[in-house]
């Protein structure tokens, strides 16, 4: 079947089998391998991307379901020269160990700060329930998310 979707601002029209997962379109068809497949059972969140602005597990979405949608992957939020504030915060706080969960963590963290409005340690920890870091490096990840969440609040107050 034919599907059309916008990924990181670029329009794509693809011919894929009906049972193709969104994550396979992203990785196999578009070769955007920053989105990872950790568990493939909807537990770990490594495959998290933004679907029309909200974090979803792309291993648990059919490509057919998102025909006409807007998808953002880790490749679409910043560049090496111009990191997204969340990527910069992960760097500043050393919020990674092996790095496998990091793309999903960052995509979830952006959704949390932009759409859920987390402010406290507890809110961030609960908000990241859908992402598993098997290095168990949660402490610095939470610090990084809080750094961005609180910077956002400060800016709002200054304005």
């Amino acid at each position: 079947m034919q599907i059309s979707l916008t990924v990181n601002g670029h329009d794509h029209t693809l011919d894929v089998p009906e049972n193709t997962l969104l994550v396979d379109v992203i990785r196999e068809h578009l070769k955007l391998t920053g989105t990872h497949v950790g568990c493939d059972t909807s537990q770990c969140g490594a495959c998290t991307v933004h679907l029309d602005g909200r974090g979803v597990k792309s291993c648990t979405v059919l490509a057919a379901q998102v025909d006409g949608s807007n998808v953002t992957t880790i490749e679409g939020i910043g560049s090496t020269e111009n990191l997204h504030p969340m990527q910069q915060a992960f760097r500043d706080c050393h919020a990674l160990q092996c790095g496998f969960c990091t793309p999903g963590m960052i995509m979830s963290a952006i959704d949390l700060v932009e759409n859920v409005g987390v402010q406290t340690n507890q809110e961030v920890r609960e908000g990241l329930e859908g992402n598993i870091c098997r290095c168990t490096g949660y402490h610095n990840i939470v610090q990084a998310v809080l750094q961005v969440a609180r910077a956002g609040t400060d800016q709002t107050q200054e304005n």
């Binding site: 969140g45 679907l51 979803v56 979405v61 979830s108 959704d111 908000g127 859908g130």
Partner: peptide, 9 residues
Amino acid sequence: IGDGQVRNR
């Protein structure tokens, strides 16, 4: 219910 990503779908 579930986690944030599950609740979004």
